[in-house]
């Protein structure tokens, strides 16, 4: 299958490993990945901070860029959520019904990675090998906007060598929330503290999720406290194999 990668600005700029892992994984499963170079950002940061007018050109760009592709994937629940739920809203509020129709059309072909794997490609065992103790944090937008359900867990359970431990109070927000983490840094940090406490209680070596943004927040806190727990994007775990473990290919977002 020919799959267009919607890399997301954050993965492109700060967490390319998550995006590279998505490419390696899909190619290993026998698919062709293309990267439309005209893409930049879906505009979520603007919409969530209160700048819908500024987000409009970015939404138009996103639609133009991805319209030619039948299947589009992003390694981010939050950015897919933005495309599905925010793009049509912003287009309608701007009075552009034609754009709203086009964004809905593109959104219907856009999948978060675990959705693509389980629903479209029909795989749960992707042939990965990752010999670590791992806990999974379901990010709010994957959980409540996309309703990915247990798809990520099914994928993780099929990874060889992986010791999956349940995260207590998993469904509570980690406190990232984009602009929230900066404008309400104290409250965000209080939420982060509780999330870290739960992660540490699992004695996992790795905390994974399907959003680089939440992992940046959670990983930043875990690193600040020198907990030794790494945050690793789900795509990187699924892309890891016996071979990558032996050749020492980088599989973690942060050491």
């Amino acid at each position: 299958m020919r799959i267009a990668l919607f890399v997301t600005c954050l993965a492109d700029t700060v967490f390319p490993e998550a995006a590279k892992a998505t490419v390696r994984l899909l190619e290993r499963l026998g698919h062709e990945v293309v990267f439309p170079a005209e893409q930049t950002c879906c505009g979520q940061m603007h919409v969530n901070t209160g700048y819908q007018r500024e987000a409009l050109p970015l939404i138009r760009r996103h639609v133009r860029t991805f319209d030619p592709y039948d299947v589009i994937v992003a390694p981010s629940g939050s950015c897919v959520g933005s495309v599905r739920h925010q793009h049509p809203l912003v287009a309608r509020r701007a009075g552009d019904d034609r754009l709203a129709g086009r964004v809905e059309d593109v959104a219907a072909r856009t999948y978060e990675l675990s959705e693509l794997l389980v629903d479209v490609l029909g795989v749960t065992d992707v042939g990965a090998y990752y010999p670590h103790r791992v806990t999974y944090h379901p990010t709010c937008h994957s959980l409540r906007m996309l309703r990915v359900g247990d798809r990520p867990l099914r994928l993780l359970r099929a990874v060889r060598g992986l010791d999956l431990v349940e995260l207590p109070d998993a469904e509570q927000c980690c406190g990232f929330g984009g602009t929230f983490a900066v404008k309400n840094a104290d409250t965000s940090t209080a939420m982060l503290a509780d999330k870290m406490r739960h992660v540490l209680s699992t004695r996992a070596d790795v905390c994974t999720a399907s959003d680089a943004s939440c992992l940046m927040h959670l990983g930043g806190g875990l690193s600040r406290l020198r907990t030794g727990v790494r945050t690793v994007h789900l795509a990187e775990i699924l892309a890891a194999t016996e071979r990558s473990a032996i050749t020492g290919e980088r599989t973690a977002v942060r050491p």
Binding site: V14, F15, V182, N184, A185, T189, L192, R224, R254
Partner: peptide, 10 residues
């Protein structure tokens, strides 16, 4: 507000 409690990624 970010760096008060969180490291930045490399």
């Amino acid at each position: 507000g970010w760096t008060a409690s969180r490291d930045l990624p490399d």
